[in-house]
């Protein structure tokens, strides 16, 4: 898994690079200590990530079972992959889950941050409360939400016991709604971090801006939406990248909440990969799926480089 999630994580310094890239460059000599100091990290990055990714791709073209081998079978692992309903459903799910949880997460995170920004009393306490879910393992989060959504134990039965006997709220038991139940559980876990990043972004905005907006008579909500928000690009990008990497490798919360069910309706690509390289003893198939997971990440990274290169070219022209 690490090798799959890694390129996404590596994209983060790239985003920071857009800001750094505009500064005038000054060449300076590398000192020997810094080279020595970073060597282990460079070796790890190349050894663990780059080489592992290369092997993953190579093995995806082989008939590797439990033990990886080099018996090449062309594209047949990919043919099987895209013939498998479960994989196609997984890919659709990760898109729906990703778009929903990122959009809702960002909106809610920003709203919470704005709320915290009102100089409320006990801000520290509230911040801890909102951040607390993130400190919990997704497995614990998932189990708690699974119980709450369980028709016989959770919210549904509690409300029914109060007297509303036709009340229905058990998203995980129906395949049409199970995915949204997952989104809810994931949001509860992750929205606090988005809030913290957004809040840091809000606090980073110069107080003078606020004064100027007040003088101009702009309502507070407009200031938040049209003036402050566009000034927080860095915070937004960071929050976006963090939640995006979380989406690509979404695994544990699904295992804890639905195990991919009902049926295969909440399967995710990462579960497919893990299951095939472990219990199902089909490393070739698992690696083909892993390679497919790498593709969108690669596309995002190359798009980002394209933008950066474009921006640089424009900057050079002016």
């Amino acid at each position: 898994m690490t090798q799959i999630a890694e390129p996404g994580e590596r994209a983060a310094p790239g985003f920071a690079g857009t800001a750094a890239g505009r500064k005038p460059r000054t060449r300076r000599k590398f000192n020997i200590q810094s080279i020595l100091g970073t060597t282990p990290m460079i070796a790890t990055a190349i050894g663990v990530f780059v080489i592992c990714i290369i092997f993953s791709i190579i093995w995806s073209f082989t008939s590797s079972k439990l033990f990886p081998n080099f018996n090449f079978v062309g594209l047949s692992q990919y043919e099987r992959l895209w013939r498998t309903d479960r994989w196609i459903i997984s890919v659709q799910n990760v898109f729906v889950y990703g778009v929903l949880s990122m959009i809702v997460g960002m909106v809610f995170g920003y709203l919470l941050a704005v709320f915290m920004d009102q100089r409320i009393r006990q801000e520290d306490l509230f911040r801890s409360i909102f951040l607390y879910p993130f400190a919990m393992s997704l497995v614990v989060t998932g189990l708690v939400w699974q119980w709450m959504f369980d028709p016989n134990l959770g919210i549904q039965s509690a409300v029914r016991q109060l007297g509303w006997t036709s009340f229905e709220f058990a998203p995980l038991v129906k395949q049409e709604t199970a995915l949204y139940g997952l989104v809810l559980g994931g949001l509860w876990n992750g929205v606090g971090v988005t809030m913290a990043i957004m809040l840091a972004g809000l606090r980073g905005v110069d107080a003078e801006i606020w004064k100027a907006a007040k003088v101009d008579g702009i309502p507070t909500w407009k200031t938040y939406l049209f003036i402050v928000l566009p000034m927080m690009k860095g915070a937004i990008a960071t929050a976006f990248i963090l939640s995006a990497t979380g989406v690509v490798r979404v695994f544990d919360i699904v295992i804890a909440m639905t195990q991919g069910g009902p049926g295969v309706s909440t399967q995710m690509p990462a579960i497919y990969v893990i299951q095939h390289i472990t219990d199902r003893a089909n490393v070739g198939q698992g690696m083909a799926a892993a390679t497919m997971m790498l593709v969108p990440v690669m596309v995002i990274i190359s798009l980002q480089y394209l933008f950066q290169w474009n921006a640089k070219r424009k900057a050079a022209r002016t």
Binding site: K65, T84, D85, G261, G263, S265
Partner: peptide, 19 residues
């Protein structure tokens, strides 16, 4: 059946059951 095949059967039957 290998575990791989059993797994595919599990997926199929579970999908049929739920859908």
């Amino acid at each position: 059946q290998s575990n791989d095949t059993t797994g595919q059967m599990n997926d199929l039957v579970a999908q049929f059951w739920a859908d």
